[in-house]
């Protein structure tokens, strides 16, 4: 069983809502990115999504776009992202999902990427712009390399496609709870619950919902219909706000505990 599957099995056994956190690797720089990842893990994030900085993040809103720009300016790449993970893996408890656009991994080459990712201790890979139809060879290679293929589904995904994603995905299924790009919103989208219901009914995989979540009440609300909630832009915005604070790590750790509902703001 993969580290990701283990995590979701444990969440179900404990009857607890999981928290999946997203941050962009190398933001604001390599050293502080390591501090942030360790803080997220200490704060109790159940899965760490690590974003690969990319020049053209067309599924992301302004918060994550700016994080990508900051990281790229510091020289971050797919290779340095894998290096960051490799250096931290032994000290982290949570499984790691690499979150990337296709071109950087395509440029590195599938075989070379999988070797490097496995060696670095990556558990799963989510490619934003690689839909099922384009990814047959990619998914087999990941399976063979022992890496989970994390698939995204959306309110526009048909029931038939959702079943297909449930069959081909590994680890968990990531539901996009609203149409649009990533970013902080005030409330959980109306599309979220019906999507989660379809995901549960049509697939055997654990369900995580994301896009727009930023507060403990959002996480709790998602927990009523899904196994886990994904918080990305809200954390990335905090990293930007607290980047120059000496206690960046401690603040991020407290923020994660706040999101989980175990600490006051």
């Amino acid at each position: 069983m993969s580290r990701i599957a283990d995590t979701f099995a444990r969440l179900r056994a404990e009857g607890r809502t999981g928290l999946v956190t997203y941050v962009t690797a190398g933001d604001p720089d390599a050293a502080r990115s390591a501090v942030v990842l360790q803080a997220l893990d200490r704060g109790g994030a159940d899965v760490l999504e690590v974003g690969v900085p990319f020049s053209d993040p067309l599924a992301d809103g302004p918060v994550i776009q700016r994080a990508s720009e900051r990281a790229l300016r510091q020289g971050a790449t797919l290779d340095s992202t894998l290096g960051l993970i490799e250096g931290l893996r032994a000290s982290l408890r949570a499984p790691i999902v690499l979150f990337t656009y296709f071109n950087p991994v395509f440029r590195m080459g599938t075989a070379a990427f999988i070797d490097r990712a496995r060696a670095a201790g990556v558990d799963g890979v989510l490619v934003l712009d690689l839909p099922i139809e384009e990814s047959a060879a990619w998914r087999s290679a990941l399976d063979a390399g022992g890496l989970d293929t994390i698939l995204l589904v959306s309110p526009t995904t048909s029931d038939a496609r959702l079943r297909e994603a449930g069959r081909l995905g590994r680890g968990f299924l990531y539901g996009i709870s609203r149409l649009g790009v990533t970013g902080v919103r005030d409330a959980v989208a109306a599309d979220a619950a019906p999507l989660a219901e379809r995901m549960r009914r049509l697939t055997p995989l654990p369900v995580a919902l994301g896009f727009g979540l930023s507060r403990p009440e959002h996480v709790a609300a998602v927990g009523r219909v899904a196994d886990a909630a994904v918080v990305g832009s809200a954390i990335v915005a905090k990293i930007a706000e607290w980047a120059d604070d000496a206690d960046l790590g401690a603040r991020i750790e407290r923020h994660v505990r706040w999101l989980r509902g175990v600490e006051a703001a």
Binding site: E133, L152, S154, T157, S158, I176, L179
Partner: peptide, 8 residues
Amino acid sequence: FVPETLVA
């Protein structure tokens, strides 16, 4: 090569 929301 599009994000899932744009596939349909």
